[in-house]
Simulated assay, not measured.
Amino acid sequence: MLYCKPCKAKIAGVHEHCPLCGGNLSGEPEKERSYPIIAPNPNRIKRIIQILSISAIAGAIICVAINVLVPAGIWWSLFAVLGLACGWLWAVVGILKKAKLLNNIVWQCVLISALAFLWDAVTGWHGWSAEFVFPCVCTGAMLAVIILATVFRMPDKEYLILLIVCAVIGIIPLIFLFTGILTVILPSVICVAVSLIIISIQLIFNWKALYREVSKKLHL
Results as ranks from 00 to 15, higher is better:
S77N: 07
L84D: 00
E30S: 09
C63I: 01
L118W: 07
V93Y: 06
S200I: 10
S188I: 03
L89M: 10
N43H: 10
A193K: 01
E213Q: 15
I172K: 03
I105E: 08
V168A: 13
P155F: 07
I61M: 13
G124D: 11
D156C: 06
G23R: 15
S53P: 00
V70R: 11
P29W: 09
L160Q: 12
K217G: 08
C109A: 15
A60I: 11
G22F: 09
Q202D: 10
V168F: 14
H219G: 01
G127A: 11
A99I: 09
L174F: 10
E158M: 05
I105K: 05
P6Y: 05
I37P: 09
C18Q: 10
T150R: 09
V137Q: 00
I198N: 13
I199V: 12
D120P: 05
V110K: 00
A99D: 14
W75L: 13
G22R: 12
I204P: 06
P36S: 04
S215F: 06
I49K: 09
H15L: 02
A72E: 12
S55A: 15
E213G: 04
I171P: 03
S53I: 03
A39L: 10
A116L: 00
I185R: 13
A99E: 15
W90E: 05
P135M: 04
A141Y: 02
N41S: 15
G27I: 08
A72C: 02
W207Y: 13
A167K: 02
Y3P: 10
L160T: 09
C166A: 15
K97N: 14
I185C: 03
V137H: 00
S200V: 10
D120Q: 10
I199K: 07
I95G: 00
K157D: 10
I112S: 02
I54Y: 08
H219W: 05
P173S: 02
A12H: 13
